[in-house]
Design a protein around this nucleic acid. Sequence first.
RNA 1: GCCUCCAUGGUCAAGCGGUUAAGACGUCGCCCUCUCAAGGCGAAAUCAGGGGUUCGAUUCCCCUUGGAGGUGCCA
Length: 485
Amino acid sequence: MSQTVRTRFAPSPTGYLHLGGLRTALYTYLFAKKHGGTFILRIEDTDQEREVPGAVDLIYQSLRAAGLHYAEGPDVGGDYGPYIQTQRRDLYPKYAMELVQKGGAYPCFCTKEQLDAKRAAAEAKGETYKYDKTCLHIAPEEAQRRIAAGEPYVIRQNVPLTGTASFDDVLYGHVEVDCDTLDDNVLMKADGLPTYNFANVVDDHLMAITHVMRGTEYLSSAPKYNLLYQSFGWTPPTYVHLPVVMKDATRKLSKRYGDPSFEDLLAMGYLRDAIINFIALLGWSPGTEQEFFTLVELEQVFDVSGLNKAPSIFDMNKLTWFNAEYMRKLPFDAYYALAKPWLEQVLDPDKFDLRRLAELLQGRTEVLNRLPSMVDFLAAMPEYDLALYTHQKMKTNPEVALTAIDLVLPVLAAQTDWTEAALHENLMAAIAASGMKNGQVLWPVRISMTGRESTPGGAIEMAYLLGKDETLRRLHAAKARLANA
RNA sequence: GCCUCCAUGGUCAAGCGGUUAAGACGUCGCCCUCUCAAGGCGAAAUCAGGGGUUCGAUUCCCCUUGGAGGUGCCA
């Protein structure tokens, strides 16, 4: 590649950054990095009605949170600004006029009502609606007169009636369509702002974008954009269209159906690096067996040849697996800092050894937000079913449980050194002396202390965390309940 | 409807004319074990269908089917 690579992520400020958008941004960023190029951010806000207040800031925040740093953008500046399309509004009319002069576009005065009627008529006949080029035949002088008179108008692309339009995509190859299936789309709206169809071409050219990476929703209109480049006499960028991310086989990921956004995942306790790692592998393969990647590694190894053409389904299960793996890999102190606030939601830090608890939890943490429900039994003994005392493999049932508690109670009551090591030593000795199996006594003892089928540690760890008084209190309560059963 | 694109297990996917069709998640066994995880071992599970081309198709071509995207003064 002789020219310096410049790629851009160009979202519309219509809300949060969804995962499909994040992936597009990631690949766009990685492509630039891989080729030593520049990644820039451009805000496409030409549809003022759809703009959501605060969405622009959300995009900045999300991109920063993801670690996708852009060298140029609205909030960082650059030599090709402004980077927000509404701030570039004065730029577009000039190019629109140039296009009109070159025959690639024309002003149109048809009203919304007229067009709706034509559209309805076409649909009634079961035909595909296409603008009939009525205004193409208005003489330039008359058009000028009407514009000067203040009549509302738009600028439409003048698509040839015959022939074909095409472009070449790195991923999808040569895409060609018959011009007669193409409509004369609006390039400049009556409000004076360009549509995506126009702004994208003008801005990519003006910003010297060399590689356009974007979703496949633009694949079928790309030939039309190429017509624009031809009319202008500009060299089109290299295109890489990216398949969408799906929720399942037929629906794409969408906030409306409750699918999480990037920000949502972070708030739930998914790690940024885990999300990035997972997203990178969703629709792209490095071609090797490696499955864990840091952003920096991805910057080196990313290649468009590993992109898959088919849409891929977002698998929360696998994301969660990645997250659990990343949790385990964290240095303990980093994990503890992350876990602590979640633990403190349900546990008084003055009453429990949260640090020890976190040690037990680190290897079992899939997502941070699951932590509270994993430890809340420590704060208050939950209701539980006596059936929990019956466990085939542990060879226990309520009767055995009663025996076990009777065996353990005096040992614990006499325990002065309430450490895991000391508890372990004395308890194991008592069990060995009794002739019972470890699980036979430790299972029911743990149940009676926690009321949970599974806990972040065994009976000994739980006893340590609960403390002597609370342990004995819960054991006595369980004994009374079992004796009356 | 029309246009464009896509198609390997439940999911992510490797494969790019000749393979026992990798690997990962998930699932199911077994082992380990004071529970659950983690870890170890193992298992089930895929080339959508039909035609071609070829000595030989998962791989190339066509059709069908299925799916996606587009068909806006939205992007």
